[in-house]
Every structure is written in C-alpha cells, then in structure tokens.
Nucleic acid binder design. Structure first.
Lengths: 135, 135
DNA sequence: CTTTGTGCAAATTCTTTGCACCAAA
DNA sequence: TTTGGTGCAAAGAATTTGCACAAAG
C-alpha cells in the first residue's frame, strides 16, 4: 500500500494501477497537464492504458475533490493535483502554467461568501523565460 | 452611423450588419453567451447568418480588445462585451454567469506585475435563486 | 457471483479551415 | 477592381458514450 494509494483512498477513490499512476503523475509533475499529455506519458509505463480511462479518471478525481480542474487554457482542460489554494499564471508564448503562491480567499466579496465553494484566480501574460529569450 | 458602429470603429473593427448585431447582443444581454447562443438568437434577425461568422466575429472582437473571453464555463467558450474590470460568478445548478463588481487588480502579486496583461477572477457555487428554489 | 474499472470503437460537440461568392472602399 | 467579409461544407480536435471483457471485492 503505497502513499498514492492511501491518498486516493482518502478521497473515497479505489486505487487501481491506472488511477495511482495518474495521480502520481499529477503530484510529481506540477505542469497542470491536459488529459492527452497524461495519456501520452503514461502509456509508456502502461501500454494498455486508454484515453477513455484517463478522461474517466481525471473526471473522477475532480468530482471527488482529489484534483482540481484548471480552466486557464482556452483550448484544453487542465488538471492539478495540488489542493492547497493558489493561483495560476499562464504564459501566452510558451503556454506554460506556473503556480503562484497566492491564496485569494480573503478577497472574496462578503455578499457572495456562503454561495461560493470554489474560486480561481488566473493570470495571463509573458513569463520570465520568454521575456529573456526575446531580449 | 449608430453607436455600436462607432464603438466597433474605435477598436479598429469595420462595422458590418453581422458585427453590429453581435456586439449589440453582447452589450444588451450581459449573459456571457456562447457562440452558439449568439448564433441561435441572431439568426432570427439575420436569417442568413452563419455560425462561422459568429465564430470569426467573436474571435475578432477578442483579438482587438472589443470583447473578453470568459473561461469560467468548463464546456464552452463564453464572451463578454463589458470591458470594465470585474469578476464572474457561475452557478453550478442553473449555469448562469453573474457579474461581480470587483476589480482584483490590486491583488496582483508584485513579483508578477509587468508580466501580467490579463487576469480573471472566477467564482463558482450556487446562486441566490437556486438556493431559494431549493429551500 | 456481483459490482466496478478498463479500453476499444463510434458518436458527439465545439471550433477551425478552404474556398467561392458578395459587398464595401 | 481590389480588399475584406460572409457562409457553406468539410475537416479537425477534444471529449463522451455504449458496450464487452477483465478485475476486484
């Protein structure tokens, strides 16, 4: 019983080889991957893995609160296994998504507290690397 | 030369019957519609309107800063003609998207200012109406 | 055995593209 | 009379669904 397995169980999710691999991927590579990215990488470890399972699993994670849907990318759904409140920055040039250690919970408008159960703060622009590269 | 026409011109967008109708729709109905919603409503006024034109136009608006892409809805792209900084709340039950008059510009982390050219604050939960309806 | 999970293929949905025709400058 | 806009049909990409088989309890 490894730690990822215990982690999943904590969310009421039964661990399977596939689910453990996907959650482990989310927790180790904090790149906020798309379903396709997860699939392309993990199929090398699990050759029988199907994209359907990746979609099913990511959805299951989000529904059970084990992962967060990140909607900062206009093209694809992205996922995050880090549950501590934080914000996201997306670079328009390289497309990278960087965690910003900033919890905006205190900024929630008073009138709306109580109605809100989830919030996201998305930032967009050009990252340091891309700025340097152009300079 | 009506006001919507002048409005578009101000963004360097040449007004056409279709473009004026779409911008007018965005400005009058602040429902943050999807491309499909815009299409389904406006085709009644402009029977020859095509979905391609709606997509082209909304994209043109966003590229020229005349409208904002709203990514709060996990399923579809949504659009907003209101340019004053504000936040968005989406109800999980009825799917409505409500404007929240809250500019989070001052919350932007100092380290990131200068890199950021766009930001969005998305709130999710259950709206007043849906809460009442259930009570 | 009985329920749950996986994976294939097909279907769906949303969005973009290629191209011909129409309209405006 | 040239550039730009529209709209149709087709293509493309992301995601979901239906179903049969495999695995786990």
């Amino acid at each position: 019983m490894d730690s990822t397995s215990i982690h999943l169980t904590g969310f009421g999710i039964r661990p399977s080889v596939q689910r453990i691999a996907i959650m482990r991927y989310l927790l180790k590579n904090k790149t906020h991957p798309t379903a396709d990215e997860v699939y392309e990488v993990l199929r090398r470890q699990i050759p029988t893995l199907s994209k359907t399972t990746v979609y099913n699993t990511l959805k299951l994670f989000v529904e059970n609160g084990a992962a967060v849907f990140v909607g900062i990318d206009e093209k694809n759904a992205r996922f995050d296994g880090v549950l501590e409140p934080h914000s996201h920055f997306r670079c328009r040039e390289c497309g990278c998504i960087i965690d910003v250690p900033m919890n905006v919970e205190n900024f929630l408008p008073k009138e709306f507290r109580g109605e809100i159960d989830e919030y996201h703060f998305y930032l967009k622009g050009t990252c340091e690397n891309c700025k340097k590269r152009r300079a």
